[in-house]
């Protein structure tokens, strides 16, 4: 069986290598890929959209249908994760583990307890003993704001340099996940609740599709941002650049929210009570 599969792999490998010989050579100006629409993009992008980064212009303006459905694919992944993993418990969990912060003593209650409400000395911790690690917490507190600022820069600077909504959204989501790893899931849920994350998932996609709808209302094609010039004090060319920014923000929000959603569900096996 092993030799048989080896033969198949070798056969297909050599077939693929043989096929690559038919490819046009690297950077060939007469290759089919550089004959059809590429010259038009390269020559006209700056005049038509005032975006220096041609890749962003193609991605978010000329081919924005494609990017919109990419965003919807990510949204669907988040929804599928909720459907598959999320479990709702009727019964509220009793008791639990608490840490008395000043002394570091861990207490375990078998029944429901009433701790002094305004006291900040008790900390609800997970059953699998979340370590009390001040070094990691402090370092992550230092890093998270900077990575968030960098994420916003990546989203906003997609017009001029590599970057954009997908990359920036992933960095934003990673910063929240970093906070969740260094603290715990409960602390993170207290800052960004499950409901807020689910709303943001939809909001990102809605911003994208809504921009397209606004363009339709003003009589242009779906996602033809030059129609935004009716709404804003901008020339049609600048409006296209601005429209790209709006949808990049939408993509960023959607990607960030889906990343956090996936983490919440995977870290706690869908229960959203305990986890990293």
């Amino acid at each position: 069986m092993k030799t048989f599969s080896l033969i198949i792999v070798l056969l297909f490998g050599s077939l693929l290598v043989y096929c690559t010989l038919d490819f046009p050579s690297w950077g060939d100006p007469t290759a089919p890929a550089s004959l059809h629409v590429s010259p038009r993009y390269i020559e006209q992008t700056l005049d038509e959209t005032s975006v220096p980064n041609i890749v962003t212009a193609v991605l978010a303006d000329y081919r924005s249908y494609d990017t919109m459905f990419e965003t919807i694919v990510i949204f669907t992944a988040g929804v599928a994760c909720i459907i598959l993993l999320r479990t709702y418990q009727r019964k509220k969990q009793l008791g639990g583990m608490y840490r008395h912060v000043p002394t570091g003593i861990t207490l375990r209650f078998k029944e429901d307890v009433q701790l002094p409400k305004d006291s900040k000395e008790f900390e609800h911790i997970d059953l699998e003993w979340v370590p009390y690690d001040i070094i990691i917490k402090t370092a992550c507190r230092l890093i998270v704001p900077f990575s968030q600022i960098f994420a916003l820069y990546v989203i906003a600077h997609g017009h001029h340099s590599p970057g954009g909504g997908f990359q920036g959204g992933v960095i934003l989501g990673a910063s929240v996940i970093l906070f969740a790893i260094s603290h715990n899931l409960r602390a993170t849920l207290g800052r960004i609740s499950e409901r807020a994350v689910a709303l943001l998932c939809g909001l990102g996609v809605f911003m994208y599709a809504g921009t397209g709808l606004i363009c339709m209302i003003f009589g242009a094609n779906f996602l033809d941002y030059s129609a935004l010039a009716h709404l804003l004090p901008l020339s049609p060319v600048a409006a296209r650049s601005f429209g790209i920014l709006i949808i990049e923000i939408g993509v960023g929000i959607a990607v960030m929210a889906v990343m956090i959603q996936l983490y919440y569900n995977l870290a706690s096996a869908g229960k959203h009570d305990e986890g990293l």
């Binding site: 070094i135 990691i136 370092a139 992550c140 230092l142 890093i143 900077f146």
Partner: peptide, 11 residues
Amino acid sequence: FVFITSPTATH
């Protein structure tokens, strides 16, 4: 940033 993150990761 690497001086903050790398020792933390090792720790």
